[in-house]
Amino acid sequence: GHSKGRPQIDSSKATDKINPMDFTFVEINEAVKLVEMGVATPQDIDTAIKLGLNRPFGPFELAKQFGAEQIAKRLEELAKQFGKKIFEPAKTLKEGKLEELLKAGKAEGS
Score class of each variant (00 low, 15 high):
45 I>F: 10
107 A>W: 07
110 S>K: 11
44 D>R: 12
105 G>R: 07
9 I>E: 01
46 D>F: 02
84 K>Y: 08
75 L>Y: 05
97 K>F: 07
34 L>T: 08
51 L>V: 14
102 L>F: 08
54 N>H: 13
51 L>E: 14
43 Q>T: 09
19 N>F: 08
40 A>C: 04
88 E>W: 07
47 T>P: 00
84 K>E: 14
79 A>S: 15
9 I>V: 15
75 L>V: 05
45 I>S: 04
67 G>L: 07
77 E>M: 11
71 I>A: 00
52 G>T: 10
3 S>E: 13
85 K>W: 05
86 I>S: 13
5 G>H: 02
26 V>I: 15
25 F>M: 02
7 P>T: 05
62 L>H: 08
80 K>C: 01
58 G>L: 02
75 L>G: 01
42 P>S: 11
56 P>Y: 08
63 A>I: 03
18 I>G: 01
72 A>S: 11
68 A>C: 02
91 K>V: 11
41 T>R: 10
4 K>A: 15
90 A>L: 06
101 L>N: 02
16 D>G: 08
43 Q>H: 09
70 Q>F: 11
71 I>M: 00
48 A>E: 06
41 T>Y: 09
69 E>L: 11
62 L>D: 05
39 V>H: 05
86 I>K: 11
82 F>D: 03
51 L>Q: 09
68 A>V: 03
88 E>R: 12
61 E>Q: 14
9 I>M: 05
72 A>T: 05
77 E>N: 10
51 L>R: 10
13 K>T: 06
10 D>R: 02
93 L>Y: 07
78 L>A: 02
68 A>Q: 07
66 F>L: 09
57 F>Q: 12
3 S>L: 13
81 Q>D: 08
42 P>T: 06
4 K>V: 14
60 F>K: 01
5 G>L: 14
71 I>T: 00
83 G>V: 06
100 E>C: 06
18 I>C: 06
59 P>Y: 03
57 F>H: 13
95 E>Q: 14
3 S>Y: 11
54 N>D: 15
47 T>C: 05
96 G>A: 09
58 G>Q: 01
102 L>G: 04
49 I>V: 15
62 L>W: 13
35 V>H: 05
26 V>T: 14
88 E>Y: 11
94 K>T: 14
28 I>N: 00
106 K>N: 13
102 L>E: 11
66 F>M: 03
35 V>K: 07
96 G>I: 10
23 F>T: 11
13 K>S: 08
81 Q>E: 13
2 H>N: 10
85 K>V: 12
27 E>R: 11
97 K>L: 11
39 V>G: 01
86 I>E: 13
2 H>L: 09
110 S>D: 10
28 I>Y: 02
92 T>G: 08
79 A>T: 04
4 K>D: 11
10 D>A: 09
76 E>Q: 04
90 A>K: 01
100 E>S: 14
45 I>W: 06
42 P>M: 08
64 K>W: 10
80 K>P: 00
107 A>K: 15
45 I>K: 10
90 A>C: 03
